[in-house]
Design a protein around this nucleic acid. Structure first.
Lengths: 331, 331
DNA sequence: TCTAATAATGCAAACGATTGTTTTTAAAAA
DNA sequence: TTTTTAAAAACAATCGTTTGCATTATTAGA
């Protein structure tokens, strides 16, 4: 590998002169700069980030820690953040944890070992750290240095919409990793509209979301008195419920309305495009980066949690209950 | 940040002794090792990868370059490789290119700047590089230092299966980024079975795969004499075609058979689980890493391309043509 | 108890860059 | 032409580790 030293000796210059020339330092004459840059290009010099880290004390690296990259939510977050940080001259270092706290600790240590300038952490929680960090995708949205959507509000809005279009028998299905806030939003919307909560219609299961959705969908929709709407804790559950309704030959949205949560790209391409609650990914990444950079330039400060309102996206999987075949309405 | 120097002075030892103690060097007495390690832990010492890179000349970093992480194929590849490299003590540095060659050049340079020990490159091509690399997800599978599936074989197998169960009018739909090999496999299978190729049934479009599948599916399935099977260049196209058939109320698989390609996780959770050609992701990542490490330990050698056979996964979207309602068979 | 052998630790150079300070060179003023 | 000043380049220390070699401490053998 070509080093600055090599260029210096070839050009009979001092390494400091070469270093400054390459970085356009004003002290160096234009003639020398030109000569050095051209020669560096010719011999294929590539600066060594490791070597420059030491005197500078930073390497413009930022870590992103997510639980599972296969989830479209996190790969979208990565894509957004990588783009935005790239524009600022930073390199994004991605780690995944498989939702495992032991792994989380390990990747935190790796990040520290890499002396990253900052950390963006999704899903996991951490109290404090010697370096700037932001949390995203959090259960609780109070406190500091967090960016998250208002899950409670999103679910409340979704369920309110269902109630407004005439639904009363509304089920809630999700997996154990879904934030409880969504369930609370569901409960509150029912309560505020004077609908009694039926605990048998609130289903939280451990397992693969699509399977939970499919199995519980089959079960609920086979009941004699079945729900007219199913609010899903996330889109994957929604995909499973959709499949169960199609399997049972129950028409969507005429006989059952389904709402998902997250607005994954796939939802709009499903056989029946899913009504869902959109997480504004671009805003989330934008605010996360904003806060992180403020903390990086202002290390002592804490920034109050940024709460973003999710948005109800109405597609084809929901309809007013008046459209339903009357025989299916038992309530 | 705590450094080795600090530990040395606190413990009244030389930095070299501390360094060796932390790395379990045999020259150091057990007593000193214990004392150093305990103190290091107590004060929260974290080794500086940048500092140790210099004398060692390596940092155990490997780059993975993929075009688009939002595609489940690439996020699965990342997940597999991150896991396997983590076990070997390497850190995986991920870059995406958005299918853009300019971006690709940039991330190659960033990788070199990070002095990675090796590169795993998906989709993009590169002739040679001063550091070890492997290509995956490649169009052409001859040559060296590549791991890829046999796309031709996969398509040939899929289409042969359709022919074996009685289909003759088989369409092919895909987007422009799909490797041509799949189309060739489709053509060869038809040819080898004495079925004339109808160029109107071979559709390659630019755009979002699901939309291509949906729009072209609608078009093909609305024809008076419509195909009895549609072979899709990838699963996303398949998802679109599935939607179009459901929209037109054409029964799958009774009235039309659909095959995808890749076996994305979602395919088995679709309302009609998709028959598809599986890319064995684990094998691909395993071989990629094997070749990369062989090259890293044996820099001059080149390794012949590793070709992996994909596997036909039969689900619910395909059926023998004999099951089809006779009135729809015109051929 | 003294010497030899070995174990344990310290010393110092090195990795490739950056940067404050000094020296040299060139240009401007006298 | 000489002196002063500014511009350009060189010098040298430094960042936090690693590692070959020298030195010191300890143990064993005579």
């Amino acid at each position: 590998m070509i080093t600055i030293k090599r260029i210096a000796s070839d050009l009979k210059l001092d390494i400091s002169t070469v270093s400054r020339a390459l970085r356009d330092d004003e002290k160096i004459s234009e003639k020398t700069k030109k000569k050095v840059k051209e020669y560096a290009k010719k011999v294929g010099y590539i600066p060594n980030i490791f070597a420059s880290y030491l005197p500078k004390g930073k390497a413009s690296l930022i870590s992103l820690i997510v639980p599972d990259l296969k989830h479209p939510y996190y790969s979208e977050i990565f894509t957004q953040i990588e783009k935005k940080l790239g524009d600022k001259g930073y390199i994004l270092q991605l780690f995944t944890t498989s939702f495992n706290e032991k792994n989380f600790e390990k990747v935190i240590e790796k990040s520290l070992s890499l002396r990253v300038s900052g950390l963006i952490i999704a899903y996991h929680k951490i109290e404090d750290l010697d370096i700037p960090f932001v949390l995203i995708d959090q259960e609780k949205i109070d406190g500091y240095d967090k960016v998250s959507i208002d899950n409670f509000y999103g679910a409340y809005e979704g369920v309110s919409y269902l109630i407004n279009i005439g639904h009363k028998k509304i089920a809630y299905i999700t997996d154990i990793y879904t934030t409880k806030e969504r369930e609370y939003g569901y409960r509150k919307a029912l309560k505020d509209n004077g609908i009694e909560i039926n605990e048998n219609l609130i289903i939280v299961r451990n397992g693969r979301c699509e399977e939970i959705g499919y199995n519980e969908g089959l079960r609920l929709l086979s009941m004699k008195i079945r729900p007219t709407a199913i609010f899903c804790g996330n889109d994957f559950v929604g995909i499973g419920v959709l499949k169960s309704a199609i399997k049972l030959n129950i028409k969507i949205p005429d006989q059952v309305s389904i709402i998902g949560f997250d607005d994954l790209p796939i939802t709009s391409y499903l056989p029946i495009p899913l009504t869902t609650i959109r997480q504004p990914m671009e805003e989330i990444s934008k605010f996360a980066i904003d806060i992180l950079f403020k903390k990086m330039n202002n290390s002592e400060k804490k920034f109050p949690a940024k709460i973003i309102k999710p948005q109800l996206i109405i597609r084809d999987s929901t309809a007013p209950i008046y459209n339903n075949e009357k025989k299916y309405i038992r309530n």
